[in-house]
Amino acid sequence: MTLTSTASPQQAEIDALRSRITTQLEQDTLNLPLLPVVATQVLQLSGDPNADVTKLSTLIQQDQALAAQILRIANSPAYASRSPIVSLQQAIAWLGMNMLAGLAFSVSVQSGVFKVKGYEKEVQTLWHQALATGLYGKEIARRKRHNVENAFLCGILHTIGKPLLIHLMLQNNEHSSDQPSWTIMDSIIQEFSIVAGTKLAKAWQLPEPVQEAIGFYPDGAYDLATSPTKGAMITCLADHLATAIVDPTAPDEEAMRALQVVQDLNFYPEDMDAIFELKDTIQQSVSSFVA
């Protein structure tokens, strides 16, 4: 592509941002934020067959904000038990180990890693979408008899590169009085989120199937994934479904039925019907998690 001298100021700004991000990604000078200690430990626990309620409870108690979030979610309409959840232990038992581990990780990353002042709403939409992807992923995996826990984790982390890019773009502009517009940032996010996510996943040593899902979840790429858990393929469809929850302009159900990934998952019309029926439940759960 040739840049002309008549490029708009907005295009010039995009090009400048792109150039900085590209350099950082290519030259390995990416200033990756450290994974919060709590998130690291939660992630380790979620994959540890020896993990027990006491360990996780102790861990969550170390982070007051996280504990409060967990209690709030456990008491939300989507998850409320017959009697009110009044203790963390009770909340943990009610939500379940795997759901809790995923949530705790998500919440702690969300609140602790990326400073995105001024774009809280946009970032929250990204997390809504990621959580919905995780929840849809679970149901797709259940239907395909693939690993449900792995599908959830792949889903909630598949777009981890997006908030990272926002963080980096704002960091690059910290001395500037004018922060880039969301339109500009979004174009950079679309272009670099997979590369950035892959880099972050590697740096954080996320489980291999999750790294694979982050790198290969888009349409046409999941065939490159080799994990028997099929996390990338499952996340691909889950991502489309989740996008429809957060974006009213997303393709409708009929368009989604025609996706290649639906064919590749060997989903028949009744399989998709069953998945579409989960929309309200998932929407309610997502609202509970991230409200």
Partner: peptide
């Protein structure tokens, strides 16, 4: 059977770690 904690002989093959 939820194929996550209570599995059948199809979904048992989806385990990614050995349970205790």
């Amino acid at each position: 059977i939820d194929h996550e904690n209570i599995l059948d002989s199809d979904s048992i093959l989806s385990l990614v770690y050995l349970p205790k």
